[in-house]
Design a protein around this nucleic acid. Structure first.
Lengths: 224, 224
DNA sequence: TAAATATGCGTTTAGTTTACACAAAAATAA
DNA sequence: TTATTTTTGTGTAAACTAAACGCATATTTA
């Protein structure tokens, strides 16, 4: 057989801070689309798994440490790459707020966070990939507790609430939201407080992943 | 670059009839795994899309006409194929009951429907693919109206109900289920009846896809 | 010291889901 | 021919869940 198809991976990496969802993009150094923005990614090596390829490319191109990774979709249209037939397996990655600093230390012309409300023109079919990733993220946070992966390990309730209002694009009743999450019993209440500006200091909470897996096995499902 | 990765597609095709969910398997003619059962599939041609490759392979290997197709997941472990590095993009397909007959006309030693309750040993990592496909199907029927794709175009309510009890693996209150589905307004009530054995003849219903898309755009979601 | 701001908790109301019973239309058995 | 069995079709009360809403508390700022 003389199949000539190349295989790449791409990662849509989301970050969240202060009411803004951002995505990590790189400025392409080489043709095609030289100088344009693109989702980080690259070709898979013969003897590495797809996930290993994503993690390698992310370290090489952005220096960002990923906190959560899941496969999104495989894009395989025959004309999606001007260099020839290239199929790409796209992933969605989530990082915690401190990952923003790592990128700031890198060459700013090469890697940058963009708010998903103000995206630049993208190379290849990366616009379609990014849109699908946003839909996945918005959908998934309502039935899997992946929102926590975008927050600091310890967070006040208002951070979680704001993340959800941002992601879902609608107001949520603060009190009902709190009750609902508390009832799921996947949050540990810590004996710590933070004071962010004026107002009453907030208790810190932490997601209890172990407990979540336990509940999931029993068939209890997370749902917002 | 000297990437040497081959790309294949595989399709887990589900069918349903009389309370049994079946999956379409082929008996392999050549090595590796010669004589073992496998999910239909094969290598992607250089200038065909992934979906076209799935449809081509299904026609070539099984003669089955697919009614619904969606991408499932891409399996890319380095050791999943003894012949070398092969990644496969797996799809889930659904067919209507009359497709069963088409297969019966084909060589029975090559293509066969297996109840998902009594599956044979499978080649490659096809067991993992099939399990993922079953999870996808079970999950998806609760929030997308894909169950209709497994039934005849016109069907009595009891058929739909039985499909759901089978797929979800639990009893559903017949009256509440009917009310719930009717309330979604995606079924057209026809002026036809069928008499299946003893008992009162049942009205026939038909899924109104156009209406569903319309409702979906308005944000109304299908949910069982 | 008062006002402003954000957290934390509780109650009432509306809506949805679940549980459950019986009439109607046909096939089958007596 | 009639009674019995079988499956379809509809309604209603109870239990639960989600939505709407008010106020006290702890801190910063004026």
């Amino acid at each position: 057989m003389n199949q000539a198809i190349q295989v790449s991976v791409d990662a849509v990496v989301f970050g969240y801070e202060a009411g803004v969802i951002s995505v990590l993009l790189i400025k392409r150094k080489y043709e095609p689309f030289k100088g344009d923005w693109a989702i980080p990614g690259g070709f898979v090596l013969n003897n590495e798994s797809l996930e290993a390829a994503v993690e390698r490319e992310l370290v090489e191109e952005t220096g960002v440490k990923i906190n959560y990774l899941e496969q999104l979709y495989t894009f395989g249209n025959t004309d999606r790459d001007p260099r020839g037939r290239v199929i790409t397996i796209a992933y969605v990655g989530l990082v915690r707020p401190n990952a923003f600093k790592i990128v700031a230390a890198t060459d700013a012309e090469k890697v940058q966070w963009f708010s998903i409300e103000a995206l630049p023109k993208l190379s290849f079919d990366h616009k379609a990939i990014l849109e699908k990733a946003i839909v996945r993220l918005q959908g998934k946070i309502t039935y899997e507790p992946i929102g926590f992966e975008l927050l600091d390990k310890k967070f006040p309730f208002s951070d979680l609430e704001k993340l959800y209002t941002t992601l879902l694009g609608r107001e949520i009743d603060r009190r009902n939201f709190r009750k609902k999450i508390i009832k799921l019993t996947v949050l540990d209440e810590l004996n710590e407080k933070v004071s962010q500006g004026s107002g009453r200091p907030a208790k810190l909470f932490q997601f209890n992943q172990e407990r979540y897996f336990h509940l999931k096995q029993e068939g209890i499902i997370f749902e917002i």
